[in-house]
Amino acid sequence: MSKIVAVYNDDRKLMEAAEQLKAANAPVEEVVTPFVIEELLEVFHIKSNIPLLAFFYGLFGVTSVFAGLYYTFVIDYPINIGGKPNLSLTFPVLMFVGTVLVTVLTTVVTFFVQAKMFPGKEPEFSYPGINDDKMVVLIDKSDLTGDMENKVRQIFESTGAEKIDEV
């Protein structure tokens, strides 16, 4: 019984609660939602570095695919295809496709590393309905100091949480 769990079934109510929690400076540990609510990141001032990383992965992808093609077609095995130059204008097709592949895979891996997820990991937290349509706000009791717990509970109640529970 170390965590307070508030269950919502409406994202607008959840957003209201999130704004009030942020205003009250409550230490929210985790919010679990069945779909992406990008406004949540804004409310909690969470900035993801994945877009920037993805850009650099893209740069890496384009150079590495070009280097690979260049090595194969120009240095290692220069073959005469219809009299065309070995450094061919068809490279961009492969570079484009290869860049997308490299960027997507590395970005997904980065996401998993940042979220500390891997196949076979034990769930950190589970609650009935969390995998369905319920939105859950999670607060660790040990982070709460002084009057904060009452305040948090009041916010949950006033914003219309479906259920306030402890796990």
């Binding site: 219809g82 009299g83 065309k84 204008l89 068809t90 961009p92 097709v93």
Partner: peptide, 12 residues
């Protein structure tokens, strides 16, 4: 732009 140019370039 590229698909038209590249195909014509390659077809030669």
């Amino acid at each position: 732009w590229y698909f038209q140019y590249m195909l014509i370039w390659y077809g030669n």
